[in-house]
């Protein structure tokens, strides 16, 4: 199953749009065939057909009356659909709010109200409970991006200085993929994220886990990793809740070990890829804002910091 396809919907709005798409392809295809057949008839048809087709009346019928009827019906149908997409879905619960901020070239997700002094902050993945409306409130910290989870809904632009809304809902638990669709600079191509729909219970459990501050290192290599993190200056850009680092330039790493991907959908997430990313982020995703640390860290330090980050589940 394709995780990022408008034709493989996984939620009610995605399904409505996919159904509309099939209607359009069917109707459009039929009209296309009809017009091509008429062209063919105009060339090789019999005298009677060609005389019928070669008149002003044919233009009025085929070029005016037919489109007006078809397009009026289509307009009314699609307006009804647009209205339905704007209305809350059944379920009663108020929508879950998630703020998504676009950055060159990654995503910051915030869950307002999940902590006493704000909310948890994560990156490059949206976790949502199934069967509940989720209202994405999107904006940008720098240039214009656009958020697209084709299986759930169409795009919504993330524009600095403006908050846009997109209501999504997933029916079944599962993982979907989304991507930036407004050209945003060098690594526009590598700005993706995952959506993980979970049962309400699993989602609540995940949320509880995310509410915790970062775990204290319980092994020497992890302690070394935490120390290297500070010494190398990682805290100048990244926040790790429960430590002294709270910069907001790069992704919040409080629970980085629990995430589905690294580098905004570029790599799987485990100790090896973490080390690789830290050492060579400019080789893996050239032009992104994080420097490569291959020269600054030796092998031992790299392994340690990767191990510590991996432990932040």
């Amino acid at each position: 199953m394709n995780l990022q396809s408008a034709m493989h919907p996984a939620g009610p709005d995605g399904e409505r749009i996919a159904a509309l798409s099939w209607l359009l392809f069917g109707g459009g295809g039929a009209i296309f065939v009809l017009v091509m057949v008429l062209v063919l008839v105009a060339v090789v048809g019999g005298r009677w057909e060609r005389r019928l087709l070669g008149s002003r009346r044919a233009i009025v019928v085929g070029g005016i009356a037919f489109p007006v009827v078809v397009l009026t019906a289509l307009l009314l149908h699609t307006l009804g659909l647009a209205r339905a997409i704007g209305l809350p879905l059944a379920g009663g619960e108020p929508p879950l709010r998630i703020e998504v901020v676009g950055h060159q070239f990654w995503w910051e997700m915030r869950y307002p109200g999940t902590l006493p002094d704000g909310g948890i902050v994560t990156a490059n993945e949206i976790r949502i409970p199934t069967g509940r409306d989720v209202m994405l409130e999107v904006t940008s910290a720098d240039v214009i991006h656009s958020l697209w989870i084709p299986a759930l809904h169409g795009k919504i632009d993330m524009i600095p200085g403006l908050v846009n809304h997109r209501r999504i809902r997933a029916d079944e638990p599962g993982v979907l993929r989304g991507q930036c669709t407004e050209f945003c600079g060098a690594q526009h191509a590598m700005m993706a994220f995952y959506v993980m729909a979970q049962t309400p219970e699993d989602f609540a459990a995940w949320l509880d886990q995310q509410r915790l501050p970062a775990a204290e290192p319980d092994r020497p290599i992890l302690a070394l990793g935490r120390q290297v993190f500070g010494a190398a200056g990682c805290g100048g850009c990244h926040a790790v809740r429960g430590t002294e680092w709270n910069a907001r330039i790069g992704p919040d790493l409080t629970h980085v070990g629990s995430r589905l991907s690294l580098g905004a959908g570029v790599l799987e997430n485990h100790r090896g890829t973490l080390a690789g990313w830290i050492a060579g982020s400019q080789d893996l995703k050239p032009g992104n804002r994080m420097p490569s640390f291959a020269a600054a860290l030796d092998g031992q330090e790299l392994r340690a910091v990767a191990a510590w980050l991996e432990s932040l589940k």
Binding site: A6, R16, I17, L20, S21, L24, L74, T78, L81, A82, I85, S146, W148, P150, H153, G154, K155, I156, T181, E182, F183
Partner: peptide, 10 residues
């Protein structure tokens, strides 16, 4: 058509 374009756009 707006909803279709939300998918097709860009």
């Amino acid at each position: 058509i707006v909803p279709f374009d939300w998918q097709a756009h860009d």
